[in-house]
Simulated scan of single mutants.
Amino acid sequence: MSDTIININALTPAETEEAVNQAGETKTRLTGAKAFVSAMFAGMFIGFGALFFLIITSDPALTWGPKRFLGGLAFCMGLVLVLCCGAELFTGNSLMASDLASKRISWPAMLRNWVIVWFGNFAGALLLVTLIALAGTMGLNDGAVGATAVATAVGKVTPGWGVLFVRGILCNILVCLAVRVGFSARSVADKVLGILLPIAGFVAMGFEHCVANMFFLPIGLVSSLMGYGTDAAGALTVPGILANLSAATLGNIVGGTVVVALGYWFINRRPAAQAV
């Protein structure tokens, strides 16, 4: 009986590209209902990471730098759950653009997935916001968690649309690179360790992730209505929330598709003479 050789090395960039493309093809074959429910899970997972961030950063004893770093590490829980448990995340699905460039999927198939997953992520995030509000979680630390939720949300609706758009680009460059690291890993431990710094980094740097904001902004609004963070509550409005989500979403698409997906597709694509 021949010995089985187990390769513990990470996939090469070219092998990772193929794994990403195979996953993209699989995503287009999901039924609408399965894609939506899977996306709801992802929205909730990212929301849990965002809530973990709020709890960590509500500690007044932490100085600014350590607070951002530790909060970023806490937020990583969301993507860890998405990659290890399996769920449809809109920002990560930007990588499907490489399948499109390789003509492995069609425009309608990709856009259908994106629309279903975006709304599924939002539904999952809003469901979690409802449950968290009912659980009284915003009252933790003598209401500091609720106040932090309001302050975080206000900080996200205050910048101009263009600034938020650029922050969205920068965010999804790091998120999609983290997803590629996850695809290249051969074990759960590899996935977790590989995504920690890119995700903690984008959070600490203050970039904008549309799915995270589907939780951060509604929970901030709900917390303000519950009486937390009253000094800044007036800055939170539904039009402001929608403006942030539109800028972050479009920026995330550009960062994920143009920079990461198409960039690595160009680097790893086979010349036409070898493609037969």
Results as ranks from 00 to 15, higher is better:
G124D: 03
A125Y: 00
A125P: 01
L126D: 07
L126S: 10
L127T: 15
L127Q: 10
L127D: 10
L127A: 14
V129S: 12
V129T: 15
V129G: 10
T130I: 08
L131Q: 07
I132D: 01
I132Y: 00
A133S: 15
A133D: 15
L134Q: 14
L134D: 12
L134T: 07
A135E: 01
A135R: 00
G136I: 06
G136E: 06
G136D: 03
T137E: 14
T137M: 13
M138S: 14
M138P: 06
G139S: 14
G139F: 02
L140Y: 13
N141Q: 15
D142W: 06
D142S: 15
G143V: 10
G143Q: 05
G143P: 12
G143L: 06
G143Y: 08
A144I: 03
V145Q: 06
V145H: 09
V145A: 11
V145K: 07
G146P: 12
A147L: 02
T148M: 13
T148P: 05
T148N: 14
T148G: 11
T148E: 13
A149T: 11
V150T: 12
V150F: 07
A151S: 13
A151N: 13
T152I: 02
A153W: 08
A153C: 13
A153S: 14
G155E: 05
G155M: 04
G155S: 11
K156S: 07
K156Q: 10
V157Q: 00
T158W: 00
P159K: 04
P159R: 01
P159V: 06
G160F: 02
G160W: 02
G160V: 09
G162A: 05
G162C: 08
V163D: 15
V163P: 04
L164Q: 15
L164F: 09
L164I: 14
V166C: 08
V166F: 13
G168Y: 04
I169T: 05
I169N: 04
L170K: 01
L170H: 04
L170T: 04
L170Q: 02
L170I: 04
C171P: 08
C171A: 12
C171T: 10
N172T: 09
I173Q: 07
L174E: 06
L174N: 05
